[in-house]
Design a protein around this nucleic acid. Structure first.
Length: 326
DNA sequence: ACATGTGTTGAA
DNA sequence: TCAACACATGTG
């Protein structure tokens, strides 16, 4: 058992060696110089007396007694997140606060919580106020509260992320033949692109994460960029795979959503037009027939199987999977 | 007395 | 926004 630390191993899948900073969903980038400034100078001998060792982690500051403080800034003000024995625990505390305070824009020390990796903890975190999160971190009660929090979709607390996160509809696009053809790109109507997916200045392109359906939905990553040649905003890398796996055909609707609040998670959803389709049609119908709210998620999981069994489609397996997933 | 967290500042 | 640093305040 742990007597001292509070945010650690058991919390999530976080246990990687020493990953530098990481960015959240929509962003790709990150990684600022890892251990460049760290493991060199401030060794023992003279450091004992005065200069405190700086932390390699964001939001972590050394304390005179050798422990580590965690802090985050908001509105020009510092929010103190408590002190910790382990530098990493302070870093994790910062990460949690960052995700709660800044949602999708958070830059974290370790891989961030995500709907796919840990929906329970994410919903736990987001369902509490900033003040509550800060309080739990300062009192080192975060893990306990997480443990004792109702698993998911408890009768008491309505499911926050388990079935359908509160999200706003951004726009739909009826895909054109070229969107599902060999060009491997989806044109996003300029009007919507500029309103919802602003590209910061000279950015050559960014990776955007779109989650399919509700919790546990597959995450799709698309490269998003602007093509000067055609004066168009497009989703490129990753799009053809989506078209293929979803069996998209011209005329189908693709919906784009974004969760409200801090998370700002992006969502994508297929809205197949009724009618013909081919071998994949069965999947769609099946998905639609199951549950409207999470049809996309169901179809998504089905497709995982479809890849394995290639041509030999086994309805029985599908059914099992669907029922289990509900 | 010692640990914790705030005041404050300079840098980005 | 961020961390370094000094030190006021809290706490056992």
């Amino acid at each position: 058992m742990e007597t001292t630390s509070c945010i650690d191993s058991s919390s999530t899948t976080i246990d990687l060696p020493s990953p530098p900073l990481q960015r959240m969903s929509s962003g790709v980038s990150a990684v600022t110089s890892p251990g460049a400034t760290t493991i060199s100078s401030e060794h023992s001998t003279e450091a004992e007396s005065k200069k405190l060792p700086s932390s390699q982690y964001k939001g972590v500051v050394p304390q005179p007694n050798g422990r580590w403080g965690a802090q985050i800034y908001e509105k020009h003000r510092r929010v103190w997140l408590g002190t910790f024995n382990l530098e990493q625990d302070a870093a994790r505390a910062y990460d949690l606060a960052a995700q709660r305070f800044r949602g999708r824009d958070a830059i974290t020390n370790f891989p961030p919580l995500s709907l796919s990796s840990d929906p329970h903890q994410l919903s736990f975190l987001l369902s509490r106020s900033k003040a509550e999160v800060v309080d739990m971190l300062r009192k080192h009660t975060y893990l306990d509260e997480l443990r004792h929090s109702p698993p998911l979709s408890s009768p008491n607390h309505p499911p926050i992320l388990s079935t359908k996160p509160a999200r706003e509809h951004l726009f739909d696009k009826a895909v054109t033949p070229s969107d599902v053809g060999k060009l491997n790109r989806l044109v996003i109507p300029k009007q919507h692109a500029e309103k919802h997916f602003p590209l910061s200045d000279g950015a050559k392109g960014v990776l955007l994460n779109f989650e399919e359906g509700g919790a546990g939905g597959k995450v799709w990553r698309f490269r998003y960029s602007y093509w000067n040649s055609s004066q168009s905003y497009v989703l490129t890398k990753g799009w053809s795979r989506f078209v293929k796996e979803k069996g998209l055909v011209a005329g189908d609707l693709v919906g784009f959503y974004r969760s409200k609040g801090e998370e700002r998670q992006l969502y994508i959803e297929c809205k197949p037009r009724s009618g013909e389709g081919g071998g994949v049609q069965m999947l769609r119908l099946f998905g639609v027939n199951i549950v409207k709210a999470s049809a996309a998620a169901v179809v998504g999981s089905l497709n995982l199987n479809r890849k394995r069994s290639l041509e030999g489609i086994e309805v029985g397996l599908f059914k099992k999977q669907c029922v289990g997933g509900l």
